[in-house]
Design a protein around this nucleic acid. Structure first.
Lengths: 212, 212
DNA sequence: CACTGTGAACCCGTTCACAGCA
DNA sequence: TGCTGTGAACGGGTTCACAGTG
């Protein structure tokens, strides 16, 4: 599976959207979909839809659109959704515990396998099958069942330390809820879920509207 | 405040980062910062930093960098952070209640003023000063204290309904945690916080690494 | 005929490079 | 001299437009 063309990373995010909608359509009993319909559902142009698919191969039938089950399988394979990905969570405060309680993860192909915190009051709490452990115990994680995906939901001032620790234990992808830019060496992917940045976009927009 | 140049919307998100770092530096007692330092702190190039600022005016001193208090004030003004923005939240499940408990909002200039749910078990719960109300009561919101910023944290299948309702009550900016593309007329800004899209980016990356 | 797949054109954000200023 | 501010060059992602196919 060598990719010749360079694939815009934004295309990958869109594949997620397509998969979501295609799955929904499949549940509704539809079996064919065109790039125009899929564009409408995702708020994108039909050309964008076709171009995105073209990075990965040819899934469509000329004149007839895409076969939904086939397209769904293709997207699932591309996105690596044919396995259950284990996730390590660090920080079990507001956000962390909400994630632990979130039932949707599992049907999405992700599962929080381990949860850590530094706060003695939180350590030992049970969320489903997961018991919150002391952050120190992270060294006991089986090396062969490597971390790969980690979520950081600790306060800003300890996020970098946590990231360094996680990377030492082979984390390759980090979803970061802390409002800091994490410094990581390349080979590690960080994705920031930053509430205040999003809200500040809003206050900017609203302020500009008023001042114009 | 007419903007001649077109400002990339990504520049606004970066302004948030700059403000965050500049605020931090200010607290540390620093009073000057260069575009290079600010770039290091935010993971951006110095040219990017200067270009972003240039969209909004000239804040720097040639040869000496930027005056931190002055820059901070300028960024705060641009981002509209000199007032407390009221937010309406709909959906008080896992994510919604985590947001209600999150103390950081207020010092960031945002405050959840109203919270709604459809579930009788959740209605009436109190989080600080906020009591969860029945979604039906949304019509009682004072029209003059308009909604403007809203957060949707309801399940996917009711998110569009909620969005329509919020927009009817003058919401202009919607932060959407539900995994659906909301259809809104223009003039309304939607920003999606989509956990599964982020995680699927990760599973794509990890899968590609293994297959290469 | 309807719709896919894709090279080419276009557009827009980022980077470069340097003139200008303290 | 050191760093800002910015027009110009660059690059890459999106859109266009149409050839190709069932």
């Amino acid at each position: 599976m060598l990719e010749k063309k360079k694939i815009p990373k934004s295309a990958i995010s869109r594949l997620s959207l397509y998969l979501r909608e295609v799955t929904r359509l499949g549940k509704d009993g539809k079996d064919k979909v065109s790039s125009i319909e899929l564009g409408d559902l995702t708020g994108l142009t039909d050309a964008q839809v076709r171009k995105d698919f073209s990075y990965f191969g040819q899934f469509g039938i000329s004149g007839a659109g895409y076969d939904i089950p086939k397209l769904k399988d293709a997207l699932r394979e591309i996105l690596g959704k044919d396995k259950l990905w284990p996730i390590v969570l660090v920080g079990c405060g507001n956000i962390g515990s909400a994630l632990l309680r979130y039932p949707g993860f599992k049907n999405q192909g992700f599962i929080i396998k381990e949860a850590f915190d530094i706060d003695q009051k939180k350590i030992g709490r049970r969320y489903g099958d997961v018991v919150v452990k002391d952050i120190e115990d992270i060294r006991d994680i089986e090396r062969d069942e490597s971390i790969e995906i980690a979520i950081i939901a600790v306060p800003a001032d300890s996020a970098q330390n946590v990231a360094d620790m996680l990377i030492r234990y082979d984390a390759r992808c980090i979803l970061n809820f802390a409002p800091v830019i994490l410094k990581v060496n390349n080979g590690v992917t960080v994705s920031n879920m930053d509430l205040s940045t999003e809200l500040e976009n809003f206050s900017f927009i609203l302020t500009s509207l008023k001042n114009q």
